[in-house]
Design a binder for these strands. Structure first.
Length: 999
RNA sequence: GGGCAUAUAUGUCAAUUGGUAGACAGCCUCCCUUACAAGGAGGAAGUUGGAGGUUCGAGUCCUUCUAUGCCCACCA
């Protein structure tokens, strides 16, 4: 058979065909697993924003999750990788509002709440799939049949149940407090949604306030960055120890522009060294002033509207002015009154809205809050007692997590938006609130239908913090009335709400209400999830909250491990940002280098540290993909009669691994298995050549290393091992070693004649029957290749599937037994774990000696500038053992060193005009170069080597002469050094002898 | 103001519990050898940010300094 493949791998085609087949074949669903007793493995994707598009951080995280999932799936786990998106309240509302403005020149208020949310849903259906399609392109093996959206009915139900439960326990309350307010979005924000922004050209204004006292001229100067807020001042504060102002404490000030009188108070909060040591106090517009105001019982005078303009209480002249216009006016007025003492430059940090970057106002507003104490304690207790969650990398995340929890404050959960989960609270005519799961329930409580639902919606995170279990079917309905059974004892003790009798007493018994639908089964099967993979910036926003909610509501942890990826930085080492324009779009990279190259490049960079993006890195793996492609191409060109068969390299196939006796149902029922079940015997590896035993050993060792690395989330280690195994061991050495054995073309040296492609084809057609040995050799290399592709599959799914499909013998018989029913695909093949008994250290060290010999000869050739076409003679003087190894592999040595003869002896007997070298084991080699040798160059070369050994040897002899080292270091270390010193000594002596021969 | 991290070859990054510093890219030499020039063979390149300390032995542990980055925090 002739398999014509192009000489370069084009990722496009593979990317287009395989994903569809995987998805349609149901390979991504846990149901594909036929093993009832399979262990489960589950990951829920951190839901990207519905408005979002894929960025490098996603690509990295998704790759990591997919690598983990694909490997576990191949290992026979029942895997679920669940996709979904987040409704992203603020940003989505912003986006649709903007669109509405552009297309219809209307505001949300113009069209009303219902029409607006309708529009958002439309928008969601139309554009919300962008990121989902990009995720498909990434090749991630998520179960689309379980795709979730934070506003799905069942997730909404969960949100309402959680809200009501917390309310009934007294953990959710409504109250007026000072909050972060975005005047642009006109909503409250939690502390976590506020960012700091440096303002280098900030100003500090010094305002003089006249003091009412006997001395009419007396003023007190305050420094402020926000003069407009002076309109809401209700005091001036000084430090009680401040001598400058001691006599003023208790006096009154006539506040300019307002006609109001405010007191001077003393408070420790005031820093005497900053500004003038006197601080204007605006309790309604500054968090510190708010606190101070409470301490001194000051009035809270709100002078601003919610859109950032001043209100009537700011005074008639200011009413309706934008805050920045008002600022100018206040300053102008002070100037005019001669009360503006001075203006100073002042670098400062401004709080801005995370979404729209508008400067935040702090103001007093009535909002819904969640008391976090109870849940916080659950999480902290688990951290203390079991060090949960386990973060990778552990530092600094574990500590940051704990510190944050310890200082946790109440969470503002209401948002003044229309897009989101509307707060399940209703008010009657008198303003009395009824919190319930539905309007009907509320009406029942209120005894009237005349109710108005709270206008606000919940913080987006109030739905995402339930993500680990709400996506698996938890709605909170099933366990209503039986909380105590599921909840951890601790939370039960603490929740006063658990004794609250709900108006639902007619509920049937808990057991009967337990919904055992498929969704609940998912919860039972897949929760807790195994690992959460996410970025650093949402440890507080999301990770910690998920822990708390999960402990609280289902009494178990949401996930086992937390893997925090590093940040992908721009090529310039800075953060990627739209404004800087230094971002790299993963889709562009996919187009340029292919998805697989991008994936493995990302995984290979994932150490947990931040890293700067390099196109060259992806290019390296693009080349790697091409290498894999061509290696496969070569194997296929020489594959007639062969097939992938683990038994051919001494590995038990999946059928052998499956429980003995029990013939897998699949092999009986499915004919597709037949073709592959020719897997007969597992051969005895010891009968194979050193080269074969070596590659089998390397393969198994690599498999073990890859598995170990992935278990520890050491993705870069896994990639490194795979890269070097495949490229160095398999391609550079193994293929070259067995080339003649598996190829029909005969000895490399024999035919130099040109062969036209026609003739070649003709030759291929009437190939003589292959010898059995050749077929076995071909099967071995195909099998090693096939195993390698499996190991690579989690990282490079498209390429490996594309190639695997072409391998003879690659069929569902190679699947993990759990999937023997499924259509042939590498993604269900049995993931190699590495058979320790096939690791052959002897073969590895023997091969290392052979490679050293070959490399040494090549080195001499290169340095002596011997033409590639010149075939030289190798003379080697070695001990008996080495001679045997060399002679057994003579053909390969000759070929790879481009030599015509290999003369083995106990001692060298060569012409003086020879280039010489010594191997680590003392083997002396020489290449006679009559006439060709440049004695000067050879002397230099030898001296060079002697010098290098000398430096190394000196270091070691020094170590050995140190008594402390010899006495205290482990004996094996000492012995190793001694051994190396012996080697160096022998080599140096031989080289010196050779050098002297030239003098 | 606190907390944490990072500093290793020209660049981007590795280095399991302390045990003779590695990869990739780039660079130099040779080769378009019949899987692959997105390739092959060979090679050069590092006082591991500075200074101390612990240890037989330190890139790795401790102290300190310098630079950079991130997180948290109410300095008007």
């Amino acid at each position: 058979m002739t398999m014509e493949l192009s000489t370069q791998y084009d990722p496009k085609e593979a990317e287009e065909t395989h994903y569809k087949r995987w998805e349609e074949g149901g390979f991504f669903t846990p149901e594909i697993n036929q093993n009832e007793n399979a262990e489960k493995y589950s990951i829920v994707i951190p839901p990207p924003n519905v408005t979002g598009s894929l960025h490098m951080g996603h690509a990295l995280q998704h790759t990591i999750m997919d690598v983990l999932t694909r490997r576990k799936r191949m290992l026979g786990y029942r895997t679920l990788f669940l996709p979904g998106i987040d409704h992203a309240g603020i940003s989505t509302q912003l986006m649709v509002t903007r669109q509405l403005k552009e297309q219809e020149n209307k505001t949300p208020q113009d069209i009303g709440r219902e029409a607006f949310t309708e529009k958002v849903w439309e928008w969601k259906h139309k554009y919300g799939n962008t990121i989902l399609n990009q995720m498909r392109r990434e090749g991630i093996s998520v179960d689309w049949s379980r795709e979730r959206f934070t506003m799905d009915d069942s997730l909404s139900k969960a949100v309402r149940n959680v809200f009501v439960t917390l309310y009934e326990e007294g953990a959710i309350y409504r109250g007026a407090r000072i909050v972060n307010w975005c005047p642009n979005d006109e909503t409250v924000l939690s502390d976590l949604e506020v960012e700091d922004k440096e303002k280098k050209d900030g100003k500090l204004y010094f305002l003089k306030y006249p003091v009412r006292s006997d001395d009419q001229e007396r003023t007190i100067t305050v420094a402020t960055t926000r003069p407009e807020t002076m309109l809401g001042d209700t005091a001036v504060a000084v430090n009680p120890n401040d001598e400058r102002y001691k006599d003023l404490v208790g006096k009154m000030i006539s506040l300019p522009l307002t006609g109001r009188e405010i007191p001077i108070v003393a408070d420790e909060y005031v820093d005497m060294d900053f500004g003038t040591g006197a601080v204007k106090i605006t309790p309604a517009h500054d968090p510190n002033d708010y606190e101070l105001g409470l301490r001194h019982d000051l009035p809270q005078l709100s002078v601003m509207n919610l859109n950032g303009t001043m209100n009537a209480d700011a005074g008639a002249e200011f009413d309706g002015l934008d805050r920045y216009v008002a600022r100018k006016k206040v300053l102008a007025d002070f100037e005019e009154l001669g009360l503006l003492e001075k203006t100073a430059d002042h670098e400062m940090i401004l709080p801005v809205c995370e979404r729209c970057k508008t400067v935040i106002e702090t103001l007093i507003s009535e909002q819904w809050w969640v008391k976090m104490d109870g849940m916080r304690d659950l999480a902290l207790e688990l951290k203390r007692s079991e060090d949960y969650p386990r973060f990778t990398p552990q530092n600094p995340h574990a500590k940051v997590y704990t510190d944050w929890l310890e200082n946790l404050r109440d969470w503002t959960i209401s948002r003044q938006l229309w897009w989101g989960h509307q707060i399940p609270a209703w008010y009657d005519k008198d303003g009395k609130v009824y919190v319930a799961r539905s309007r009907e329930e509320a009406a029942e409580q209120a005894g009237t239908e005349d109710l108005r639902q709270d206008d606000d919606v919940l913080d987006t995170w109030f739905s995402s913090w339930l993500w680990s279990f709400s996506t698996l079917g938890w709605t909170g309905d099933a366990k209503r009335g039986q909380e105590s059974e599921v909840q951890s004892p601790k939370s039960e003790d603490e929740s006063p709400g658990s004794s609250v009798q709900r108006p639902k007493s007619e509920d049937p018994s808990p057991k009967e209400t337990l919904d055992v639908g498929p969704e609940t089964r998912d919860l039972q099967t897949f929760h807790p999830t195994n690992v959460l993979v996410t970025a650093r910036d949402i440890i507080f926003l999301w990770v910690s909250r998920m822990v708390m909610s999960s402990l609280k509501f289902i009494g178990e942890r949401p996930f086992d491990d937390v893997y925090i990826t590093g940040t992908v930085l721009a090529p310039d080492g800075q953060r990627m940002s739209k404004t800087k324009g230094n971002g790299v779009d993963p889709i562009d990279v996919f187009d340029q280098f292919g998805v697989d190259a991008t994936r493995i490049a990302l995984a290979g960079s994932s150490t947990g540290m931040d890293f700067a993006w390099r196109d060259e890195k992806v290019e390296t793996y693009r080349n790697f993909a091409n290498k894999i492609w061509n290696a496969t191409r070569f194997c296929l060109m020489n594959s007639e009669g062969a097939k992938a068969d683990p038994g051919s390299i001494g590995m038990a196939g999946s059928e052998q691994k499956a429980e003995s006796g029990e013939p897998s149902e699949a092999s009986v029922s499915s004919p597709t298995v037949r073709e592959g079940s020719g897997t007969a015997a597992v051969i005895d590896v010891s009968a194979l050549s050193i080269a074969d035993r070596w590659i089998i050993s390397r393969l198994n060792k690599t498999a073990r290393e890859v598995n170990q690395a992935l278990d520890k989330y050491a993705f870069h280690v896994a990639v490194d091992k795979l890269y070097h195994f495949f490229w160095d061991d398999f391609c550079d050495w193994y293929i070259e070693l067995v080339k003649d054995e598996i190829s029909d073309r005969g000895e490399w040296a024999s035919d130099k004649g040109q062969v036209t492609s026609d003739e070649k084809e003709a030759q291929d057609k009437d190939q003589k029957p292959k010898s059995e040995d050749q077929i076995l050799a071909r099967s071995r290399i195909i099998t090693v290749l096939e195993q390698s592709l499996r190991l690579l599959h989690p990282f490079m799914p498209y390429l490996t599937e594309e190639l695997w499909q072409k391998l003879p013998g690659a069929n569902s018989g190679l699947h993990n037994p759990a999937y023997s029913n499924a259509d042939r695909t590498i993604m269900l093949a049995d993931f190699p774990t590495g058979d320790e008994s096939l690791i052959d250290e002897k073969a590895e060290s023997d091969m290392a000696t052979i490679f050293e010999l070959i490399t040494k000869v090549r080195n001499i050739r290169a340095e002596m500038q011997i033409k590639p076409s010149d075939k030289i003679a190798i003379h080697a003087a070695a001990d008996e053992k080495s001679r045997r190894i060399f002679s057994e592999n003579e053909a390969q040595i000759l070929k790879l060193a481009r030599a015509a003869e290999l003369n083995l002896s106990e001692s060298l007997n060569v012409p003086n005009a020879s280039a010489k070298g010594v191997l680590n084991n003392g083997t002396e080699i020489a290449i006679p170069l009559e006439g060709l040798i440049d004695f000067e160059k050879e002397r230099e070369r030898l001296q060079n080597q002697i010098d290098k050994l000398e430096i190394e040897g000196e270091k070691m002899r020094k170590q050995l002469s140190n008594e402390n080292f010899v006495n205290k270091a482990p004996a094996e270390k000492v012995e190793a050094v001694k051994e190396r010193v012996r080697e160096i000594k022998i080599q140096t002596e031989l080289l010196t002898k050779n050098l002297e021969a030239f003098r």
